[in-house]
Computed example of a mutant assay.
Amino acid sequence: MTAAAASVHASAVKVGDHAVLIRGPSGAGKSRLAFDLILAGRAGQIPPAVLVGDDRVHLATRGGEMWVSPAPALAGLLEIRGLGIRACDFVSEAPIGLIVDLMADDAERLPPPDALRWNENGIELPRIPVGKGYAPLPLVVAALTTTKSS
Rank of each mutant, 00 (worst) to 15 (best):
P113H: 07
G44Y: 08
I85F: 14
G133T: 01
G131W: 00
P72M: 03
T145D: 02
L139Y: 09
I123P: 01
V20Q: 03
E120Y: 12
A4M: 11
V68W: 14
L59Q: 02
V13Q: 12
L125K: 03
G53T: 08
G84F: 03
R62M: 13
S92N: 10
Q45H: 15
G133I: 06
I22E: 13
A12F: 07
A5Y: 06
E65C: 05
A40H: 05
G27N: 12
D36F: 05
R56H: 14
R86P: 00
Y134I: 15
L98T: 05
S69F: 01
A75H: 03
A60D: 15
A49R: 02
T2E: 14
P47Y: 05
A71M: 09
D54C: 08
A135W: 00
D114V: 11
A142P: 00
L98R: 06
A34V: 09
V68K: 08
T145I: 07
S69T: 01
V13G: 07
P95T: 02
G131L: 08
G97Q: 11
M103A: 13
L59K: 02
E79I: 14
A4V: 12
K132S: 12
T147V: 08
I46G: 02
R23K: 15
A43H: 13
A71L: 12
F35C: 00
H18K: 15
G27L: 07
V130D: 14
I46L: 09
K148H: 15
F90W: 09
A135V: 03
V140I: 03
V100W: 14
R117F: 01
C88N: 04
S149L: 14
P72C: 04
A34D: 05
A4G: 13
V91R: 00
G84I: 05
L98S: 05
V50L: 04
G29K: 08
N121Y: 11
D105N: 10
M66D: 07
I38S: 01
L74M: 13
P95S: 13
L125Y: 01
L144E: 00
V130Q: 10
S150D: 10
S11A: 15
D101Y: 02
S26Y: 03
L116N: 06
G122T: 07
V141W: 06
H9M: 12
L116C: 15
Y134V: 15
D54Y: 13
A34E: 04
L59S: 01
P25M: 02
S7N: 05
C88P: 00
V141D: 03
V20T: 09
A94I: 02
R42W: 07
G64A: 11
L77G: 00
G82W: 07
K30N: 12
R86A: 10
A142M: 09
I96Y: 10
E65I: 03
A28E: 08
K132D: 07
A12R: 09
V57A: 06
